[in-house]
């Protein structure tokens, strides 16, 4: 109920959904970089797999030679060779 209301408000006011709904925004630049906003912390970090928790579940990114370029309260910037991004709602 609450969620639907927020959804409607954001659509009517043209506000960014990730801010209003507090859900992650994932931006992928080619196969080189992945930026995740609104995350809830790292679950797993390896050079070929990174898992980040969020409100909609764990985001799993697979690839090679991952480097966490930046990490802060709002965003994580990952660089490396990105092969797949999987959003699993558990």
């Amino acid at each position: 109920m609450k969620r639907k209301l927020k959804h409607k408000i954001s659509e009517s006011l043209e506000m960014p959904k990730e801010v209003v709904l507090d859900i992650p925004c994932i931006r992928i630049i080619g196969t080189e970089e992945v930026e995740i906003e609104n995350h809830k912390g790292i679950v797993e970090y390896n050079s070929n797999i990174v898992r980040v928790s969020s409100n909609i579940g764990t985001i799993q990114i697979k690839g090679e030679n991952f480097i966490i370029k930046e990490i802060s309260q709002d965003s994580i910037v990952l660089s490396g060779k990105v092969e797949n991004v999987k959003l699993s709602n558990e």
Binding site: Y45, S47, F66, I68
Partner: peptide, 9 residues
């Protein structure tokens, strides 16, 4: 609030 970057395993 610590700035940390270029993390490489």
């Amino acid at each position: 609030g610590i700035k940390i970057w270029d993390i490489k395993k």
